[in-house]
Design a protein around this nucleic acid. Structure first.
Lengths: 337, 337
DNA sequence: TAATTTAATGTTATCGATAACATACCTTCA
DNA sequence: TGAAGGTATGTTATCGATAACATTAAATTA
């Protein structure tokens, strides 16, 4: 591996001079600069980030930890985060916790040992608290994405989950629905909690009963067989006229199961959810959804993070950005009114 | 930041002893081992990967570079790669080139300066050659994914694109189609080339004419407005009864445009493509596709990479794994026979 | 012209770890 | 009982870069 010393030797200068050329610092004569640059070309020199980071104490690497790389919401978030990071001259590394606290822990350890300059993270849930505390302990700046974690005060970008939940109910009610069930992510995830709360808010506005059995909580990333969802659907009595899914993945799973039962959407039951389903929904605009500004989540979150790193004003109060979402009405709700 | 020396001091041992405890090497008495471990706990010590890598000359980091993080094919590949890497005790970093040579170059530079142990890469196309040569030059092992690059001999995992192209034609012909067009990725990408070749193979088998105007090449990741695709569709004369899309994203874009023209699939025109569309297709099994084993692409590719790294047998001949794909027949093709 | 800047470059120490070699202190057995 | 060998630990050099502090030579100023 070619080092700065190899360059120095061949160019007849000291290593420090080479370093100065690389970093464009200090005063260097045009002549030596060219000489050094030429030798670097010749030898295909690439600086060793490890060595540099060791002394500068910064890596110029940012980390994005999402919970589900197969979910279109998060891939779009990633694109936003990537654009913002590259624009600011950082390079970005990704991790995927799979909605799994253990895996998240693994990635957090990687992050710690890698000494990245900052982390944009969608926490797996409230149990992510110790992970975030580790980051705090080691003075690694981070910004939360999409989900709050009780016990942590920090910058965050999220959606208006509670409002959105209420709006879904309001819409369903406007279409004549009164028996509205909800399949949701675990209550140990703030967004799921708020969506459920919004759902309840909505029911109360219209004096509709809040029935415990109408609410089912499971993982935001349902396991393939979906047996618990199926069992839940089977015991619904009376069967709801509409179901709200807490995210896109749950909506897909629910559609699959309903279909397997021979139930048609929206004729037999209506379905709405949070988040778009990906590119396909542009082609077959079927599902009525709450659409969040995924790209903006990533872009703004990353901007906040970089801001935090560069003006390391510890005292600056934390920022909380709530991005509004849109109700996109399509064809998955039957008009009962 | 807590270092190995802080631990050493507090535990009344030398730094080397601490290092031995961390790495479980050499002989350490039970007593000192416990003492050191306890101090590490107390001080929340986390080893500095940079420092370690500097001397060991390995990072235990692998890199996965894909071309489109919003494409379900690649996200599934990623999951496979991730599982294989974590299983082998490596940590994995992701990059997303966006089918863009410039961006790819940026990621390659990141990879070089980061001195990762190996790279699993889906190259943006034939123009990736210099990037891969850079990796070779710097002795960074890599395995290709999904696409070959002329001029590079290395381990690779890919699909049977040519066969699959032919099979799609055969299927369409079996349904009575004779006017079959193809919208494809750029011929500077090996998979696109082979898919086109397979398409031509198929036409020839049935003595169907190969019409240049029936073939359109554009990016595998179509720009939002899809104006070139639209122009192409407009000039098709006679209008084909079936269209083959070179990947899922092109299929989606084509569906969108056909729909905008008021053409229905499959009544007015049939459509098939390579790769699944993501979770949604399970729910609404509509598009007839060639389904590739995306997860296996990632898993096996990563295994090959790790194998290459660990038994650095330079002389071992390169391996080429071709994963067979399945034709999944659904409802997007009209029976004209 | 001597004193003082300024420009161009070099030296040395350091970042946080590990490799390689060195050194005690015990065992063990001829 | 003393040489050989193992166990537990320490010392020093090193990885590849940069920071901080020299040093030299040329340019400017009093």
């Amino acid at each position: 591996m070619v080092t700065i010393y190899d360059i120095a030797k061949k160019a007849n200068v000291s290593a420090m001079t080479v370093s100065r050329v690389i970093n464009n610092t200090g005063n260097i004569s045009e002549k030596t600069r060219n000489k050094v640059k030429q030798v670097m070309e010749e030898l295909n020199y690439v600086p060793n980030r490890m060595a540099r980071s060791l002394v500068t104490q910064q890596t110029k690497i940012l980390y994005l930890l999402i919970t589900d790389i197969t979910n279109p919401f998060y891939t779009t978030v990633s694109r936003g985060a990537e654009d913002a990071a590259l624009k600011a001259g950082y390079c970005l590394l990704f991790g995927n916790s799979d909605e799994n606290i253990e895996k998240e822990n693994g990635y957090i350890n990687t992050i710690l040992t890698t000494r990245v300059d900052g982390v944009l993270i969608a926490p797996a849930g409230d149990l992510s608290l110790p992970h975030l505390q580790k980051l705090e302990q080691h003075d690694i700046p981070f910004v939360l994405l999409d989900r709050e974690v009780p016990g942590i005060e920090c910058d965050i970008v999220l959606g208006d989950s509670r409002d959105s939940g209420r709006r879904l109910v309001e819409y369903l009610v406007s279409q004549g629905h009164r028996d509205i069930a909800m399949i949701n992510g675990s209550s140990s995830i703030s967004s799921a909690r708020l969506r459920k709360q919004g759902y309840i808010d909505g029911l109360k506005i219209y004096d509709l009963p809040v029935r415990e059995r109408y609410i089912h909580e499971t993982g935001f990333k349902p396991a393939g067989d979906g047996s618990d969802i199926e069992a839940w659907l089977d015991q619904l009595q009376p069967f709801p006229t509409a179901i709200i899914a807490g995210n896109n993945a749950l909506a897909v799973e629910t559609m699959r199961l309903l279909q397997a039962k021979g139930l048609h959407i929206p004729d037999d039951v209506s379905l709405v959810c949070f988040d778009e389903l990906g590119p396909y929904s542009e082609v077959d605009p079927f599902l009525t959804v709450i659409s969040q500004q995924a790209y903006q989540f990533g872009y703004m979150g990353m901007q906040m993070l970089i801001e935090r790193i560069q003006n390391s004003t510890k005292d600056k109060p934390r920022q909380k950005i709530v991005l509004p979402s849109d109700l996109i009405i399509r064809r998955s709700v039957k008009d009962l009114s």
